[in-house]
């Protein structure tokens, strides 16, 4: 296991929900926890901060066991989903709050607040109250306040979920930039896979209170270790394996491939060994998505989604998928199709 960074083994049980999650984040990484709602993402963060009690397991940060350290001594800052800016304090007072707690002198405090405000691009906002800020500005202040506590670990709980799509994209780039500038180990919870894939060094996929997979974004996308991860991250097609694969061993399994791995042919493809060929699929709908077309097709009664560059001229098309791109899931095992 890792010796540096964050190492968690979390166990806690609640009414109708048990959490049992193990994962590690390396020093300086920006890791995203992603999963459907109710999978235990937010609970995980609350357990790490110590706001919720841990039933069993441990939390280790840079080699120190934090399990019995009180919340305010953990040096783990958290940005809450609804920002939680103190409404009776100005922007500057909010950011200065953790500095005051650490008995930092007033002159230094003012300087640090200025630095942090410029880090989050909010120069000149010192005097404002939280109800005079937009959602995106509140988010930045909350981030600056969290950074002011000089945390060893920064937790972000769905920080962008309350913002509109355009601002979300911009702010997630900002979060990445601020992370790179400060180098603080960061754990980021989201349910938006695009957000996770685009900014994370590491993706931790959670499902029903357990960690399903942890790894680099590409790894999780291209080599999912379970059908859940495969279908949860990105779009994909699943078909019963026996339809295409006559081997006895694969009868009960499911094959999986991504829409962009499908090649659409104008003519009937020849017998080409490294490929699986699908002929006479019916096009049920065709969406223009700007750079490409997204086709909903039906092949032998099964829906298959594929991307292609041109709008098909006929309602019946043929396509193929390279065997090396196809994953075969059987029970809890997964492997590539034999070529």
């Amino acid at each position: 296991m890792h010796t540096s960074g964050l190492v968690c083994a979390l166990g806690a049980s609640y009414e109708e929900f048990t959490l049992n999650a193990q994962f590690a984040v390396e020093e300086g990484e920006l890791a995203c926890i992603i999963g459907p709602s109710g999978c235990g993402k937010s609970t995980t963060l609350q357990l790490i901060t110590g706001l919720l009690p841990l039933k069993e397991g441990s939390i280790t940060l840079f080699g120190n066991d934090l399990t019995s350290v009180p919340v305010h001594h953990r040096q783990i800052a958290m940005v809450f989903q609804e920002y939680a800016l103190f409404p009776h304090m100005s922007v500057a007072e909010n950011i200065a709050y953790p500095l005051k707690l650490r008995h930092i002198k007033k002159s230094q405090r003012t300087r640090r607040v200025d630095e942090l405000l410029s880090l989050v691009s909010l120069e000149g906002y010192e005097k404002r109250k939280s109800d005079e800020l937009s959602g995106g500005e509140k988010q930045r202040v909350a981030l600056a306040r969290a950074l002011a506590s000089d945390p060893q670990l920064l937790l972000l709980d769905e920080p962008l979920s309350a913002l509109d799509a355009k601002l979300r994209k911009h702010l997630r780039e900002e979060i990445r930039r601020i992370h790179d500038e400060t180098g603080i180990t960061t754990l980021y919870v989201t349910h938006d896979q695009e957000e996770a894939l685009s900014i994370a060094d590491r993706i931790i996929v959670m499902h029903e209170g357990t960690v399903m997979q942890s790894g680099k974004a590409e790894e999780v996308y291209h080599a999912p270790n379970s059908l859940f991860v495969a279908t949860f991250i990105g779009e994909g097609n699943t078909l019963p394996a026996h339809l295409l694969h006559q081997d006895d061993e694969a009868r009960g399994g499911v094959i999986f491939f991504r829409p962009e791995q499908v090649t659409v042919h104008a003519t009937t493809p020849g017998e080409y060994l490294p490929h699986l060929a699908f002929s006479d699929a019916t096009v049920e709908s065709c969406e223009f998505q700007g750079g490409r077309y997204r086709l909903h097709t039906r092949w032998q009664g099964h829906p298959i989604v594929c991307y292609c560059d041109r709008r098909p001229r006929t309602t019946s098309i043929n396509f193929s998928v390279r065997k090396q791109d196809i994953l075969l899931f059987e029970g809890t095992n997964s492997k590539n199709l034999p070529r």
Binding site: T49, L51, H72, H73, A77, F80, F86, S149
Partner: peptide, 8 residues
């Protein structure tokens, strides 16, 4: 909770 994670 927020105040607590900030060190209070």
């Amino acid at each position: 909770n927020s105040a607590r994670t900030l060190g209070s």
